[in-house]
Simulated scan of single mutants.
Amino acid sequence: MDISSDGARLVIASAGLTVPKRFGVALVPNSPPRECERVWRNGEMMGVRFTEPR
């Protein structure tokens, strides 16, 4: 939904989906995933902070 150099706000497909504290996310199709950590979650919305510099 929103992205910056430090993190992003993501929309999750299902509010009941379990998301780990740390995971990789590919923000552009066919690009390598960026490592990130979940900072907050509210239903289907989630904020993540990128843990690797870009």
Rank of each mutant, 00 (worst) to 15 (best):
D6Q: 14
R22N: 12
P29D: 06
V39S: 02
R41W: 07
V48D: 08
R22P: 02
S31I: 00
A26Y: 10
E35V: 03
V48T: 06
R41E: 08
F50S: 15
L17V: 01
A13D: 15
G7M: 02
V28F: 02
N42V: 09
D2A: 00
I12E: 13
I3V: 14
A8R: 09
T51P: 02
T51H: 00
P33V: 00
T51Q: 01
V28N: 06
V19D: 09
A26K: 07
I12Y: 15
R41Q: 14
P29K: 00
R22Y: 04
L27C: 01
G7A: 02
M1S: 04
N30G: 00
R22I: 04
A8Q: 10
I12H: 12
V11F: 11
S4I: 01
P20A: 11
G16M: 04
L17F: 09
L27M: 03
P32N: 11
G47K: 10
G24M: 01
M46E: 05
R49K: 07
R41H: 09
P53G: 02
A26M: 03
P20N: 13
W40E: 07
P53K: 06
A26W: 03
E37T: 14
K21M: 06
P53R: 11
L10N: 10
R49Q: 05
R34N: 09
